[in-house]
Design a protein around this nucleic acid. Structure first.
Lengths: 93, 93
DNA sequence: TTACAGCGGTTTATAATATAAACCAAATTA
DNA sequence: TAATTTGGTTTATATTATAAACCGCTGTAA
């Protein structure tokens, strides 16, 4: 049985990646709402995905408010797809 | 996004459950080989699945050797199927 | 003008989890 | 009879997930 990429095999990180697979970009607040996570947890998981090179984060401003925007990378996309393929074996799909 | 049953969202437990979904029963040694896990790890995870009522374990003998046989329960089957449905949302399947 | 209540996060402490190492009893082999 | 192997279990450790506590900035009401 194939190994399941442990970086993706985590509910919150998988949720984030899943969202980012389907949109051009998403900001912190949006991800937090969609995943119903706490800010702290989300922050940590975003860090891990960034360190792995699976997403890129850009911090900017909207008016005077900070805005953290996330985007999936090619590497992240590939890892996600590989993870899905591996999981299929487990799920009998 | 639906919650992913944490008992099933673990590589080794998922592997065990996946195998048990497809066979009438499987013994410890077989599961260990198929999953390429250590005996200790497998033992712990089998315990957890048993405690949850997802599998049942029967200890018997083959000649003079002990044999630990595992079988999935209806509850386990249902939990597995629910987990698969929940995951599909994440994987875009 | 200060004080205090959000917003958008980050850092850090803790609880839970996965995993392997160490162990055990019975059976086999040398 | 002394290793070795087999089929596991128990326990210690390392990793991970998660929330709590915190921080700086902004708006606002007193």
């Amino acid at each position: 049985m194939k190994e399941l990429n442990p970086l993706l095999h985590s509910q919150l990180r998988l949720a984030v990646m899943s969202i980012l697979m389907n949109v051009e970009e998403a900001d912190f607040v949006y991800l937090k709402e969609k995943t119903e996570s706490t800010a702290g947890n989300l922050s940590v998981q975003i860090d891990k995905l960034t360190t792995a090179g699976y997403i890129v984060v850009e911090k900017g401003f909207v008016g005077k408010k900070t805005r953290t925007v996330c985007q999936i990378t090619d590497l992240g996309r590939a890892a996600f797809e590989e993870y899905v393929e591996a999981l299929k074996d487990y799920l009998n799909l």
